Amino acid sequence: MAETAPAPAAGATTGTSEFDRDTAVVPRAPGVYDADLSAGWTIINAVNGGYLLALVGRALAYELPHPDPFTVSAHYLTASAPGPAVVRTQTVRAGRNLSTGQASLFQEEGGREVERLRVLASYGDLDALPDDVRTTAEPPDLPPVEQCFGPDDAPDRGAVPGSSAIADRLWLKLDPATLGWALGAPSGKGEMRGWFGLADGREPDPLSLLLAVDALPPTAFELGLSGWVPTVELTAHIRARPAPGPLRVSISTRNLAGGFLEEDAEVWDGEGRLVAQSRQLARVRL
């Protein structure tokens, strides 16, 4: 197992980072929040799904009596664009240990309001969970950071058409074994692994884990496919509050059929704990 990677350059803190500013929501009325989707989190031709999940997750944290997302399930209905948006939330149930809420994100399009994303989520208190862990899961064995590669190392950053603005917001170092697609020789294995953090040095927290599960390049690239891979549905489970330092993210696809594939993601913190898991169904352009 590789040793813990050196962290991205320190600087921003929780509350002052670009991630926090760009996922901010402003109360307009009870259960209604205004937001501005930043162009800095776009990939190819749409706003990244993990960023949207974190923004809606922040609104639900204000709505619900518990602070931390435990499970968040999102259906992506239409592609989001940079610009104004509104999030409407509702408390479904407020229990002793868990509270459940739903939320939808809307944008104006052609003079009418269009729903972009619908979420159902349960929140709790991660600090109140017992310490008992019984698992057979193991973190990915990544090469040291100096042997991994980020977007700035790519021979041609324009190899993927459209916007890659999100790459400038992330500190991402990918395992060379999953980078065949960048050299025109995809492995065909449907795997993506790497070290992950925010470029401004902000430490991970439960909301940024919602970004981490959907921030690596699509596994479809290693299957020999290119272009946009829009998410249809994504469910994330936040298992623990992450320790400071870089995260390890591993994503795999076992089945592509009928133009759809699944992506299973695991996120591990610097103490070797599994802090987040997700599964999504995505559509590919064959």
Rank of each mutant, 00 (worst) to 15 (best):
R193V: 00
S208F: 03
A240C: 05
P144C: 03
T231M: 10
D214T: 00
E233M: 13
A212P: 03
P144H: 08
H237M: 08
A257N: 12
A177Q: 10
P244T: 11
G258K: 11
T136M: 14
V267Y: 04
F196H: 09
L247N: 05
V249N: 13
P204S: 08
A215F: 01
A185Y: 09
L223A: 07
A128N: 11
G150S: 07
A154G: 08
G201I: 01
D156K: 02
G201S: 07
V232L: 15
G188Y: 11
V133G: 11
E222P: 09
A137P: 09
T231R: 07
L210F: 06
P139G: 04
V213E: 02
S226R: 14
P246N: 07
L170E: 00
P206S: 09
P130W: 08
E191F: 12
G224R: 05
R134F: 14
S163M: 04
P161I: 06
A159Y: 04
P140I: 02
L179A: 07
G258S: 10
T136P: 06
T231F: 12
T219H: 07
G184K: 10
G184I: 03
V232E: 11
A128T: 14
P186F: 04
A185L: 08
D127V: 13
R239T: 05
G188Q: 09
A236Q: 05
L174A: 10
P143D: 02
P139W: 03
T253I: 06
E203V: 15
L172Y: 02
W195P: 00
F196K: 03
S250Q: 12
R169K: 11
P161N: 10
L247C: 08
P186R: 08
A240Y: 10
T235Q: 12
G162E: 10
P206G: 10
R134S: 13
V249I: 15
W171A: 00
A159S: 13
A159C: 09
F260S: 12
A199Y: 05
L247Q: 06
L174E: 03
A185Q: 12
A154M: 13
V229Y: 05
S250L: 12
S187G: 15
R248L: 03
R169Y: 07
T253M: 07
S226Y: 13
P230E: 06
P143K: 08
G158T: 06
S250W: 05
L129Q: 15
P246S: 09
P161C: 09
D264F: 14
C148P: 00
L223G: 05
D168V: 02
L198E: 01
P217F: 08
F221S: 04
S208I: 01
R134M: 13
L179W: 04
G158F: 11
A215I: 00
W228V: 06
P230D: 10
F260H: 15
G197E: 01
T231V: 13
T136K: 14
A199E: 04
G194R: 05
L198H: 03
G184W: 10
W181L: 05
P244E: 06
D200I: 01
D168Q: 12
G188T: 12
F196G: 00
R157Y: 13
V267M: 09
L170F: 06
E262L: 13
T219C: 14
L261R: 02
G180F: 04
A257F: 13
G258D: 10
G259V: 04
